[in-house]
């Protein structure tokens, strides 16, 4: 690829970049260590109230305990399952409805004001109603998770679909393409990237729905751990729940990034 031998200046440039990258990483790790260390120290010295903020070592001990007796994985498994169900059903259903709206301008215009109102409504306000309708337990929680991402998915996907270049549609029509062919050969493939972005957003929203749902009704799951810990004033349990939640959400996000890279190739 390179016709010229690599110059010294270029090597210096690369070195400089890498040095900067290392420096930033070192700072990030140090900040984290300093934070955890001073938290622990202040807790042990009794300067901060461990009853309110717990301490890193207590959280760690609890984490090990939950891992050893296996209940952590049960809680994670349930929340993870609810989240995956929530965002995949929410995304697929949302896209199917968006396709219907794209297909029929009349339906889109009839439903438009309802979508606008529903979109403006904070969806968590509906959670108690949905629990009553769909029942407590996994079903109700998944329905809450779906409800949080569904409307925004429909609106975003519909917007992407109708903004595909009209001239490209004309090109396909000049070959006699049917509406279904325009959908499968242009509208959907042109929006693969956008749909992945919708999925990313929906994962986050779905976690919100699942945690809210578990707060309300559940006997298990990460949300249950957090709310239970709060009720019995065990802040180490609350903190552990939040920590585990952050890790799970992060891992899921990374998984999607990986899938995105595989699709791009």
């Amino acid at each position: 690829m390179n016709e010229n031998p690599i110059s010294k200046e270029y090597l210096d440039f690369i070195k400089e970049k890498q040095k900067k990258k290392r420096l930033i990483l070192i700072w990030q790790v140090s900040l984290l260590i300093i934070f955890l260390f001073s938290w622990e120290l202040l807790a042990r010295l009794g300067i901060i109230n461990t009853f309110l903020v717990s301490s890193p070592s207590a959280i760690y001990k609890l984490l090990i305990e939950y891992i050893k007796n296996g209940s952590l994985f049960r809680h994670i498994g349930i929340s993870l399952w609810e989240t995956i169900l929530g965002f995949s059903i929410g995304t697929i259903l949302g896209i199917i409805i968006a396709i219907i709206l794209w297909w029929s301008d009349t339906i889109a215009r009839i439903l438009d004001p309802f979508f606008v109102v529903l979109n403006a409504l904070p969806k968590t306000a509906l959670a108690p109603i949905l629990i009553v309708w769909a029942g407590a337990g996994v079903k109700g929680i998944v329905v809450i998770a779906i409800s949080i991402s569904l409307i925004s998915t429909i609106l975003a996907a519909y917007n992407y679909f109708i903004n595909v270049d009209k001239e490209k549609i004309k090109m396909l029509q000049s070959f006699g393409a049917s509406k279904f062919q325009i959908l499968t050969k242009l509208i959907l493939p042109a929006n693969v990237k956008n749909i992945i972005n919708i999925v990313k957003i929906n994962i986050g929203l779905s976690w919100v729905g699942v945690i809210v749902g578990e707060f309300l009704v559940s006997r298990s799951g990460i949300g249950y751990l957090i709310v239970y810990g709060g009720q019995v004033f065990r802040l180490d349990l609350v903190m552990m729940g939040v920590f585990v939640l952050a890790i799970c959400a992060l891992l899921m996000y990374q998984a999607i990034n990986l899938i995105e890279k595989l699709i791009k190739r």
Partner: peptide
């Protein structure tokens, strides 16, 4: 009829 447009309208994917 074959129609050729001002822009090529190639599909990038």
């Amino acid at each position: 009829i074959g129609y050729m447009f001002q822009k090529d309208h190639l599909l990038e994917w």
